[in-house]
Amino acid sequence: MLTEYNVEGGDFTRAGYASSQIKKTLKNLNISPEIIKRVVVALYEAEVNIVAHAFKGVISADISNSGIKLVLEDEGPGIPDIDMAMTKGYSTASSRVREMGFGAGMGLPNIKDNADRFNIVSRVGEGTRVTIEIDFAG
């Protein structure tokens, strides 16, 4: 089952929409709460990163019997140094974004902690693709 969601950069009023839709879908499929929690945390962080850091993006969610694969592809500034971006506390968020309580530099580490497999590919000046896979069986 494949679903897609569009995400607009800068539009914080809709941040978390895809995460809440996918949470509902997984609940209906009777996926365990612990797995749903991991999906929700990882997806929310990746979704907010498009809103906070990129211009626009598309989230695709592919749910199979064995797990979920999330691909978040954006058009945006890209990430020059991925290892640096993965460091806890590192953030380039604007002051407007920080005032809202984003920009702690914890999003990517949260994604890594909750994903079974996680990958970032980025081109500076073009955009970023984040892939998150979470298995349904322990």
């Binding site: 709460p33 929310y44 907010v48 809202m100 309580g101 702690a104 914890m106 999003g107 580490p109 949260n110």
Partner: peptide
């Protein structure tokens, strides 16, 4: 906490 990703990562149900 006032940091949303901190709450996301560390709060409990």
């Amino acid at each position: 906490s006032d940091l949303l990703s901190d709450v996301m990562g560390a709060s409990k149900e």
